[in-house]
Amino acid sequence: MPLITYRKALNDALAEEIIRDENVVIIGEEVAQYNGAYKVTEGLWQRFGDKRVVDAPISEAGFIGMGIGASMLGVRPVMELMFWSFAYVAWDQIINNAGQVRYMSGGLINCPIVIRGPANGGTNVGATHSHTPENFIANTPGLKVVCPATAYDAKGLMKAAIRDNDPVCVMENTLLYGESWEVPEEEYVIPLGVADIKREGTDVSLIAHGRAVITALKAAEILAAEHDINAEVLDLRSIRPLDEEAILNTVRKTHRAVLVDENKPFCGVSAQIAATIQEKAFDDLDAPVQRVCSLDAPAIYSPALENLQLPTVARIIEKVLHIR
């Protein structure tokens, strides 16, 4: 299988869906002529032209809301946020309009829209540009949210998101855009709501999403090599819908869980996972559920400290050893 980058995988998914469905249109800041602030949409404007790939002014509330309105009429906009951190400018549109209109209309209207872009810390851009709002989105029934950790997942989940008839938020990661994974040439789609075991193990379950999966995998290698602990790594991939069965199955298998989550701990995704495990797999646990989240302060700029603020391999190992 060819090795391609996470960025290219997304680019391929977008191109394939533009070709597949005439209603798919890419809209966002710098997505067309600039080729994408992070080059995810590189070459698409040249290939598909002005109608299918549209540069928007810096006007998130306006163009995201416009995309939602167009989706009510059956257009399938794929809206790029240069950073998910900018979503707060468009929050009313995303939460109140995309998220609630189906419900408030008694099911008469639906919004087949995708809102995508990177949501991550670790690039020393300070607190305003480092948000991971998957927990906020997941707290809104009516919205869906996925956080791919690999190129393979990014492509398959993006295609599923575009074909979905509900609003789907895709949270990517600028630190993964340049990383490469094996991606098959033939078409595939990864359903939303299906987790993936990224590493089989028997002694402890590391449950993560997004780039935290990669961190968990590194920790698992060290745990195996230096501590004789065989960790299983479960990648949630999708936060809402959530593959609860996969979570419970890995906990029933290993009897120990460490949740790795770039969200802040308070009301973050891992808080929901921990609640689920104690409600439904309490008797399977041999130790309290542990969490490794971003340290609970606004994202710090200092390059010397930001990597410590995010979930680290060292903190994961420490938590695992604590409950071994």
Binding site: A61, G62, G67, M72, G74, V75, Q93
Partner: peptide, 14 residues
């Protein structure tokens, strides 16, 4: 108001 704009966009797109 952005939704109304989106309806107009959808009409033009189609």
């Amino acid at each position: 108001t952005p939704l109304g704009l989106g309806l107009a966009y959808g009409l033009k797109y189609k």
